[in-house]
Design a protein around this nucleic acid. Structure first.
Lengths: 342, 342
DNA sequence: TACTTTCGTGTAATCGATTACATAAAAGGT
DNA sequence: ACCTTTTATGTAATCGATTACACGAAAGTA
């Protein structure tokens, strides 16, 4: 069992003080070169490792940053986290992961826990957008801990965010369906209290209007992000007097459900019916009937969020710069909606 | 900007000492009940939050645990991490994520970094199994930090592990293919220096022998875990004098590649050719031609690894108990190999 | 009353590193 | 030779909380 070696142990061995050791190890210019070399050599030989906790306490910086996501086992969030980790690792930061499981209570709890753990920043995708209770967020801001939202954000003064242009995502996808000759395009919308889903819906609506098509309330179905929900929703649509001939789904899973159900009913895709999803989940491109979907460049989003954090972290004194980064969504056109192209 | 409130601030306000405040907040029985109430009330009114860094320095426990995985953006690892987080969160631990990207250097670096950051334990899936250089691992053990391997493990005295029975996974899958009437079963093997892949291969081989079939070296192709690699591999197989009629792939992605290529060549699945994969990636069940695969219960694996850690963490003085937990793999039979059943 | 417990709190050290300030020694200037 | 500046190092406070030990006051005992 190895004892923990401290700078005091090194100091004692060399008959100098811990202060000198500390300075030598930190390249303080006031140290005689010979002393520095001796200290560094001795430290190495004794297998000295700096105690980060002591450093953290003294400096007030833990070199940890907290990341809060609804859940980690989703391709999107996992990829964002990967991006964050890759960007922050070279700067010496460790990434602490918290999940909310879409529970506002957990969200608040995580915020408080991270602050109490003295993280140097928090990057999060908001769960509780509707809730007016922003107490936990202001607690973070009061402590002057940089806060950056990604993907799902909330309007709070002084908080930066990195999102994709969901409106545009909805718009280009709908436009694409129109270009493929679809004239009755339905929409699977998610939780409308979340900006992302609202914007996808608005983009969809605008594309319809801009192209001389009428917006039909009946064609909008609120779904969950699940295969089952997509199946149910498509059945509702098919029972309408005038059923649609395309679906723009805000979820890849719901899109998949719709496709499975349409196939069961022998409706041919994309000939009779086109489908497009959102998120570019890995499975969309693996399917025999690959699914058209909007890519949110999660890796890039994570890296960008990390960069925004880095920009803010050393400027505690200056005025908070609220930075809003909006990434462009990219439509991946695949078989489920390709009548003209492959 | 809120000042940081410490126990000294509370003490000053109440004209007592910080020691008394600390004792009151920690339910020390030696404190007069009236004092305790007063302190707690005052602390709350002043919005006092304990500084975990100071606590960590004093106690030597950071309440952080480190998790090292090859990458986080894979369904398997993300799910394991979810399991770990869910199990450890109620115990007050925060989870720090590190990725190796399959790079042994990063693995060592991560181990040292985590120890320097004073984590209370490390849960990891090993990247560098072959490497004899176990220096970093012993460094961890010397520091008496509990270490638990999951999925990919290494034989090191005193280190517990949670794995699945890969041999059995290989065995039951191969047996299933035999039961479906396949007589020439090929195998896509991964990196054989990793126990998991070696054991899947051995299970495959044993199942062949136990069922009176001959093991054919030519039928074993070393693939990477990618669609492309699966395509290349199946083409090699099809050019053999006696091509196989089934593949047990140790990777779902390679299995998918094989399926795509077989379809291109108009070989009917499962009638003429059966395919089974490993890992139960989400896409395997979403495909129109769903893919038979072995589930590794990642969530359970994560929880189990966390529990093994919890058992060890408070027993630093007792002899290290080396615990080997082996979870049972579960074969999910789907269309890609179902001639008899659905 | 005098003596022993018990109770509640204060004093001060500790965890390990950093750093403002102090100081002794060496170097430089006239 | 004497004074000033520079250089290298030591002293001690600090970050915030915990805790062994000390001690005065209150309570219990004979």
């Amino acid at each position: 069992m190895s004892e923990k070696i401290t700078i005091y142990d090194i100091a004692k061995k060399l008959n100098i003080t811990a202060a000198t050791v500390s300075r030598a190890l930190n390249n303080n210019p006031k140290i005689k070169e010979s002393t520095r070399e001796l200290v560094i050599k001795t430290a190495a030989s004794m297998n000295y490792k700096q105690n980060k906790l002591a450093l953290a306490l003294k400096s007030g910086r833990s070199n940890n940053i907290g990341v809060i996501v609804p859940r980690i086992d989703s391709n999107f969030f996992a990829s964002v986290i990967r991006g964050i980790e890759e960007e922050l690792h070279p700067h010496g930061y460790q990434v602490i992961i918290c999940q909310t499981h879409e529970d506002p209570k957990r969200e608040n709890e995580n915020l408080y826990t991270l602050i109490d753990a003295q993280v140097d920043g928090i990057l999060m995708s908001v769960t509780d957008v509707a809730n007016e209770n922003t107490g936990a967020f202001h607690y973070v801001l009061e402590k002057n801990v940089p806060l950056v939202f990604f993907d799902r954000s909330k309007h709070i003064d002084g908080v930066s965010s990195v999102t994709i242009n969901d409106f545009k995502g909805g718009y280009i996808t709908t436009k694409h369906l129109i270009d493929e000759g679809c004239s009755k395009i339905a929409h699977f919308s998610g939780d409308q209290s979340l900006e992302i889903f609202k914007n996808r819906f608005l983009g969809y609506k605008q594309a319809l209007l801009d192209n001389g098509m009428t917006f039909n309330e009946e064609y909008v179905i609120r779904t969950k992000s699940s295969v089952e929900s997509g199946k149910e929703a498509v059945n509702v649509l098919l029972q309408l007097k005038t059923p649609p001939d395309a679906i723009f789904s805000s979820s890849d899973f719901a899109a998949l459900g719709a496709i499975q159900e349409l196939k069961d009913k022998n409706i041919s895709i994309p000939k009779q019916f086109c489908v497009a999803g959102f998120s570019n989940e890995p499975f969309t491109k693996f399917m025999e009937l690959s699914i058209t979907s909007v890519d949110q460049s999660p890796l890039e989003m994570g890296k960008m969020a990390a960069r925004v954090f880095l920009e803010q972290v050393d400027k505690t004194d200056t005025i908070k710069i609220e930075k809003k980064v909006v990434l462009a969504p990219e439509l991946h056109i695949r078989k489920s909606s390709s009548r003209t192209t492959i």
